[in-house]
Design a protein around this nucleic acid. Structure first.
Lengths: 198, 198
DNA sequence: TTATATACGGAGGCTTCCTCCGTTTATCAA
DNA sequence: TTGATAAACGGAGGAAGCCTCCGTATATAA
């Protein structure tokens, strides 16, 4: 129980991996541009691969949607770690919140499809929520420890706030700009009352 | 300005109206059963009309979705009026809240499609929200006046609560039962502290 | 009952979905 | 390097869905 299933066989082919990544890249853009019902042939066309290649990597539409979503979440969690290593915790938090806006955009487009998936996907959702909570908690705790933000912030408060942002986002033009502004204000609020020292 | 555009021409054909209603009935069920991407041919098939008939009544997919949604909202608002006429205000409120659960179910299925519509639909949304607010306010005020529920309830509190229900509903099995239970509890809460008199 | 406006239904052209399989290519062993 | 071969590629093509168009049928009005 709990074994690494990998082992045997040769190294995966470089072109296979390349095309897979390429398809996810292109799919994310296409979903954002055209909507959740882009034809898969369109995605294959943009990625400059045959339709067969797309279907081999992602047997169903849901699979490619899940792949986009999963990568988005993973990148966001990774970004938290990387940001914490390369700059002061307060800045890291601020920067990460901005990245979150891009994540919302992806999620909004994909959500309908995600919602219509059954079983397996709720697990995908769960794990993504856990990843997010972990990332936020880390950022907030370090930022408090560094004296960059007020000490009475519960990480869960931020989860809540971000959730509301994600929900409340309308499709009206300029929501992205407005949300980014909101985040700046939020950061100001967080900073006021910070110890300021190290 | 403000004229009734109707007038001329003969009476609309009975079969036309019948088929139109039939299509909306069937579409609501089909959306719930199969999801927001049911083929329109499937809907026509179930309604036992030709595909051409469906397209004449609803030139686009969005049109039929809007029709289902609009009827749902309208029926809900009408039900409030009817319930208030046929039973004590407290019971009317309780019953109406139960109907609301069915409405959520429809809305959940349709929401993705509604969300992807442009322009015209946000108006549809707005008007539905106003209808809902009006219905709830009426029910709550009359129930308070009748002494069936505590007097310190703001109609808007209920709007808020229902909104949360609608959002928080997961796709997990049994949500409908659970939500109905929540509504019963909510009603108990509303009743406690009621004057009890007339 | 007749005339006709109105509604019906489905054939057919086009797009998308998805499978299948012959061709190409990256990896590994010699 | 060079071959052998597992792995990946790509697109033809059948099935299904989208939507239009128009000949047929029927409800309404005279």
């Amino acid at each position: 129980m709990g074994m690494m299933a990998e082992a045997e066989g040769r190294k995966p082919r470089a072109d296979g991996l390349r095309n897979r990544e390429r398809l996810i890249d292109v799919a994310k853009l296409a979903f954002a541009e055209i909507g959740p019902n882009v034809s898969l042939e369109e995605i294959a066309r943009r990625a400059e691969v045959g339709i067969g290649t797309l279907y081999r990597h992602f047997p169903t539409r849901d699979d490619i949607i899940a792949a986009v979503y999963r990568r988005e979440v993973t990148q966001l969690a990774d970004a938290a770690k990387r940001l914490l290593e390369t700059r002061p915790a307060g800045e890291a938090l601020h920067e990460w919140l901005r990245l979150f806006v891009d994540y919302i955009a992806t999620k909004k487009v994909i959500a309908p499809a995600l919602a219509s998936m059954t079983g397996g996907t709720s697990a995908l959702y769960e794990s993504s929520i856990d990843l997010m909570k972990g990332a936020i908690a880390d950022l907030v705790e370090k930022a408090i420890a560094a004296g960059d933000i007020r000490p009475d912030v519960e990480p869960f408060d931020l989860v809540q706030a971000l959730g509301s942002f994600a929900m409340g986002v309308s499709t009206s033009p300029g929501w992205e700009t407005r949300t980014l502004r909101l985040i700046d204000i939020l950061m100001d609020g967080l900073r006021s009352g910070a110890s300021g020292g190290h």
